[in-house]
Amino acid sequence: MSGRPPIRHFAIVTFRKTDRFRFLSHLDINRAIDRAVRRAGLPVKYSEGYNPSARIGYTSALPVGGAGERELCQIELERPMGADEVHRAMAPQLPEKLGIVGVETISSEKRKHISGHTRAEYEIELRPAPETTMEDLRGAVGELLDAGSLEVVRETKSRVRKVDIRPGLHELSVLEPRTADAGPRLQMTLALQQDRLAKPSEVIECLERRLSSENGREVRLDVRVVTRLGLSS
């Protein structure tokens, strides 16, 4: 067979998963968006076969409890639509804290438009803890960035192994608390690729280890919420 593949039509939807909605699982989000799309009456394309499902795809999943400011999903449409038109139809279907941030529409031969991200930016808000000062945190962050390697133990279903997350730690900084009764924040950019993946919880673990050895006692950082601010390549 020759000839060009057909042109497909997509809506790339940026949405947030914040506040109490961060407790939704990835599957819950899929279901919620599926139903929102059906209520909105978008001409969504369905898969072929015995058990057709709406062609809606997502980027890497957030865990239960994890928040996101700019999460992505791609909805394949039967016909081209304007970004505004999609946005207007979708916006009333979801609560604000799980709301649509923006819509882009694309018509192309490509099947996937939201993959290939290599970096994710996170903000971790800590609960206030008087025994760990901003100064302590800044010191520990500096040491992490200066370190040649950062070893953590990663457990998967089948095995336990040691990994070095330093290559995956691109940026890390400490920010002042947002309000008087909130705790300090850590902002970081981490790699998403399999071979140098680093997770926010692993960075926290390294910071705790550093703070503990500095203070000569066990220091724990009490994480209130991890927010993925966005994805980039």
Binding site: R20, F23, S25, D28, R35, V64
Partner: peptide, 9 residues
């Protein structure tokens, strides 16, 4: 936890 958050459609 999501069963306790409310705010459903």
């Amino acid at each position: 936890p999501a069963r306790y958050i409310g705010g459903e459609r």
